[in-house]
Amino acid sequence: MTILDRQQAIIDEFKALPDWEDRYKRIIEYGRELAAMNPEHQVDKNKVKGCQSTVWLHAGLESGTVRLQGDSDAMIVRGLVALLLKVYDGATPAEIIATPPDFIRETGLGSHLSQTRANGLAAMVKQIQMYAAVFQAMQKAK
């Protein structure tokens, strides 16, 4: 599955859910299912600024692809982290940079979630894009 396929799968999944309660329930499920982050990465330097809850994002480069780990102390935000990881984890830096998080708008999550600074969704996306840009620059320098 390409990064675009993965994004499309999320769009399809959420579009099939009739109302906001179901969409939130699904996000909460994703949050509960998200694999625990390696505690050694759960440190201040991986905290994402701009969130009312605490969010950690860690990125590493493994054989050309970006491997992401993330977590939050709030469950909805944890679910959003899980969705972002579902799209971006395992993609190349170039793919990440070329793929804006359209699913946020197209799933109908956007009208509710992206407009509130509280969940820091925009800050998380920015952080992932920034990691990708750094890895791309490192690859080019080699």
């Binding site: 906001w20 939130y24 009312q52 809850s53 102390d73 709030a74 469950m75 909805i76 935000v77 509710h112 979630l113 509130t116 509280a118 969940n119």
Partner: peptide
Amino acid sequence: GIHSSDAGMILDEQGIAVRVG
């Protein structure tokens, strides 16, 4: 068992404005 930020978002969804944090 519920983070205040989670509660704030679900209340907002229902048109209820509170502050969390």
